[in-house]
Amino acid sequence: MVRPVSDLEGHPDVVELRARYDQVAETPTARITDGALVLAGLYLTVSPWVVGFPPFEANLSVNNFICGVAVAFLAAGFAVAYGRTHNLTWVTLVIGLWTIFAPLIIQRGFVTTGAIANNIVVGLIIIALGIIAMRPGLLARKR
């Protein structure tokens, strides 16, 4: 007998697994990581104005704004409902990598040193925090 997908939401194994994910995500390390990831996303959002990107880097400014908002929302989701959002932690790694290479790809080499340095540092921070954010999911699976 095949169960409809809606029945799986109430399946004891799924409920138990989500409870385990949420329990592991309540650790101080996970909370600090999620908070730092929200802050990194918010900084990436405003970084073009903090660093002072020139007008010819408008496309990079829009890119940083969109990527920053995405990281902040993902991290907020991890903090609030890790049991339902843990499968998206890899997206922060992709956004972090994109943030590092975006100045060279979007601006095609016509980019200021400040923009490159800003994106490399913020991208590396997002990648590091994204890897740490994956840890609760891996710990919950091992139990």
Results as ranks from 00 to 15, higher is better:
G35S: 04
Q23I: 01
D34N: 15
S61H: 06
L42F: 06
A58R: 15
L42Q: 08
P48R: 15
L39F: 12
L37E: 08
P28S: 04
V46E: 02
A30E: 01
G52M: 11
S61V: 09
Y43P: 01
V46G: 03
A36E: 07
L37A: 09
V51C: 02
S61W: 05
T45N: 04
T33A: 10
R31I: 10
R31Q: 14
P28I: 06
A58N: 13
T45F: 15
A58I: 15
T33D: 03
S47Q: 14
Y21L: 15
G52I: 14
D34W: 14
W49Y: 12
L39Y: 05
S47N: 08
D22H: 10
P54H: 07
E26N: 10
V38M: 13
L44Y: 07
Q23S: 02
E57H: 09
V24S: 00
S47D: 05
R31T: 08
T45H: 06
P48N: 12
T27C: 00
T33Q: 04
I32G: 00
P55F: 09
G35E: 05
L60V: 13
P55V: 13
G52P: 12
G41T: 14
V38A: 03
S61Q: 11
A58M: 15
E57R: 12
T27F: 00
P28N: 06
L37W: 11
N59C: 00
G41M: 09
Y21R: 13
A40S: 10
D22G: 02
Y43W: 12
D22T: 08
F56H: 15
A40V: 14
G52T: 07
R20L: 14
P55H: 09
T27M: 00
S47L: 11
R20I: 08
V38L: 09
L37T: 12
F56D: 13
L60S: 09
L60D: 09
T29S: 04
V24H: 02
G35H: 04
A25W: 07
Y21E: 09
T33E: 03
L60E: 10
V24W: 01
T33N: 05
V38E: 04
A25L: 07
L44Q: 13
I32N: 00
E26A: 14
L44S: 06
V38Q: 06
V50Y: 03
V51K: 05
L44H: 08
G35T: 07
A25R: 10
P28V: 05
T29P: 00
V50I: 15
I32T: 12
L39W: 09
F53Y: 14
V51P: 06
Y21Q: 11
Y21D: 05
I32W: 08
V38P: 01
D22C: 04
F56P: 05
R31A: 07
P28K: 09
E57P: 08
T45K: 03
P28T: 06
T27S: 14
G52Y: 10
F56N: 14
A30D: 01
G35L: 06
V24C: 00
P48M: 13
D34M: 08
L60W: 10
A36P: 05
P55Y: 07
E57T: 12
L60C: 08
F53K: 03
P28L: 05
D34G: 12
S47T: 09
R20F: 03
S47P: 00
E26D: 13
E57Y: 07
I32K: 02
V38K: 04
V50C: 02
A36M: 15
L60Q: 10
A58W: 15
S47H: 08
E57K: 12
G35V: 07
V38S: 02
N59A: 11
L39N: 05
F56E: 13
T45M: 15
L60K: 11
